[in-house]
Every structure is written in C-alpha cells, then in structure tokens.
Amino acid sequence: MSNGHVFVAMSGGVDSSVAAVLLQQAGYQLSGVNLRMFHNEDLGESPSRTCCSLSDAEDAALVARRLGFPFYVFDFAQTFRDTVIRNFIEEYQQGRTPNPCAECNRSVKFGALLQRVRTLGGDYMATGHYARVERDETSGRYLLKRGKDRSKDQSYFLYMLTQEELAHTLFPLGGMEKSEVRQIAEAHGLVNAKKRDSQDICFVPDGKYADFIERTTGQPSEPGPFLDQEGRVLGQHKGIIRYTKGQHKGLGLSTEQPLYVLEKDIASNAIRLGPDSALWSRTLTAERMNWISVPELTGPMAVTVKTRYTQREAAAVAEPLAGGCIRVTFEEPQRAITAGQAVVLYDGDTVVGGGTICGT
C-alpha cells in the first residue's frame, strides 16, 4: 500500500536520485520532476558548464526510467527570471550581496513547484537536500533541523520554509552521510553515482557576476572613486557591482597596508576601503524574517547564528525590533557581515528562523 504520492525534484545529481531510491523503498508512489530554470543559450553559456542543463535533465530521466516511475520536465524559466535573477541583479545594483540559492528555494522550488505538485494531487514534494523535517508534538509545529552530515548540511538555505511547506516536504537524505549516498547510488547502478557536486551559482557558472549583470541589463557599471576612511581618493574602481564587503583581491591598488572593501555608497558611486580591523562587528539587523520553531520572536532569545553558509555558527542574542525586523548581538565580533546575505538562527540542531541582513 502506498504511503502517498511524492513528486521528487530531480536535478540529475546523485543526491536527488538516491532520495528517489529511498522513497521507493519506503513504499511511496513516485513521479520525477526536473525543473527547467533557464535556457542555457539565453545566458550565453555552454550547457556543459552549468547545472540545470539538458544533460542534467537526461541523467534524471535515465534514473527515473531505471527505477520505473514517470518523469516530467516543468519549465519554470519565466518564474526564475522574474524572481531569482531579477532579485540577484537588483540587489547587486543596490550595493548588497544577494543569496540566489535561498531566493530560488523561496520562490521556485518550494514556492512555484510545491504549488504545482499540490495542484496535481501530490501529497509531498521531495528533494535531495541534507536537512530534516520533524514535528514537535507539544507545539504542533513542524521543525527544520540540520542534516546529520554537518559537512553537507543545507538547512541554512532552507530557513524560509513555511509551516505549510514543511508539512508537505520530504528530505530523505537528512539522516545520512554523503558517502552512504554514493554507495547506494553505485549499488543501484545509477548513471550519476560518481557525478561531482555542483558548486557554482547555476546561472553564472564562471563566477563573473558583474559580467552577467551587465550582459543581462545592457547597462555597464560606471567606474567611481575608491576612498579611504577619511574620504581621500585612493584610485578608481571598475564598477560598484564588481565588489563585495570584505573583498581584498582585485582592487588594483598599491598600498603599504592591506585594504578591504568596507562600504559601497550607491548614491555617490564610491567604495570605501580600510583595514581588516574595520570589518568586525558585534551586531546586525535583519528583515524579511521567517520563523519556524516559534510563531514569532517576542523577546530576547539566546541562539547560535550563521551569516554565511560556510561559517561556523556563533553565539548571540536575538531580539525583536519594530516592523518584524530583529537585532542580533554576538558574544564575539564577526567579520564582514554583509547586507543581502542570509542570517540563520539555530537552537542546537533546530532552525529557529532566518532572514536577510540589512545592516550592522
């Protein structure tokens, strides 16, 4: 007897393929779905250089055929352009550094796709994310927890999931190590068992964000002054979208002491530089908060916090501000807290909530 109908979001990689294997073994009725996020030719990229390509869709289709369940391709290119890519460009143009993977999860994978799945009669959507969903029987709330494999844990990118979305989402790999996943893929003869993980932003695989923005908008980023902390001109930058807070390499300046990007002033098109010591802060403010383990933050709360995916979380206290924003005060100063990035709050392995950094 089926445990329900699950649509598995299959990228063509090993993780989502093994998620499908595990769900099939658990007795679910499966359908595979590959998302066409964009058309490679539209971005001027070689399909072999990026994820979400035709070859990835073919790999996903081969896995679905081998396992014996239906496979579909949903074209969400327009939704992806209107949400993820538009947000990416606008954030950079406003001097912030966005997190497109989090925005994609919010708008496309757990937004548009999950809505489509529910419309088609699916009980659940599943992905190959390394995270866990549990239900707190006391509070009745669904909880998002870190994946067992801390080196692969992706809960940071999932902080925006709502209670409704968590109720209809399955993460079969949450309790597994990556090495186990590859072993299962090999045991089942999956075509992608040894396929390497994708590391790049899918629509900018060469990492040249500014070139992508200029090509997409048709608007070059104008040069402007590099300033020191006293406002003295140190040289010329090559366009404000080409730099991010904390950056040291690629400034093109010859100075006695190392200099780092401290601040970008969009109004004057100036970039302020200074020493590493000026990058450290004990506070941040965040907006667009989404709460998971609690309905809302009503008072100060001791948490651990990540302001970047690769960062170890740091002890802090979060407190509510007007308008649904929060202030986070760290026990120890943190380096290069950057507006536009995600801040995620944890209580042990449980995600309390998260939002977008808007200041320090």
Rank of each mutant, 00 (worst) to 15 (best):
A210F: 10
A210T: 00
A210S: 15
D211I: 01
D211W: 10
D211Y: 11
F212D: 00
F212M: 11
F212G: 02
I213A: 06
E214S: 08
E214P: 01
E214Q: 13
E214V: 10
R215G: 01
R215C: 01
R215N: 14
T216D: 04
T217P: 01
T217A: 06
G218Q: 03
G218N: 07
G218R: 05
G218H: 07
Q219G: 00
Q219D: 09
Q219T: 13
Q219V: 14
Q219E: 15
P220E: 02
P220I: 04
S221D: 14
E222Y: 04
E222C: 03
P223D: 08
P223A: 15
P223T: 04
P223G: 09
G224S: 09
G224I: 08
P225Q: 14
F226S: 04
F226V: 03
F226A: 02
F226M: 06
F226E: 04
L227D: 11
L227G: 06
L227T: 04
L227W: 05
L227H: 09
D228V: 01
D228A: 07
D228E: 06
Q229G: 12
Q229H: 08
Q229T: 14
E230I: 00
E230K: 15
E230H: 14
E230L: 10
E230V: 00
G231M: 11
G231K: 11
G231I: 12
V233W: 07
V233I: 14
L234P: 03
G235L: 06
G235Q: 09
G235R: 11
Q236H: 11
Q236A: 14
Q236T: 12
H237E: 05
H237V: 01
K238T: 07
K238V: 03
K238A: 15
G239N: 07
G239L: 08
G239V: 05
G239S: 09
G239Y: 11
I240W: 10
I241A: 11
R242Q: 13
R242W: 03
Y243S: 10
Y243D: 06
T244W: 13
T244Q: 12
T244K: 12
K245D: 01
K245H: 04
K245W: 02
K245V: 15
G246I: 05
G246M: 09
Q247V: 00
H248K: 13
H248Y: 10
H248V: 00
H248S: 07
K249G: 06
K249M: 02
K249Q: 14
K249C: 01
G250Y: 06
G250I: 00
L251P: 04
L251H: 03
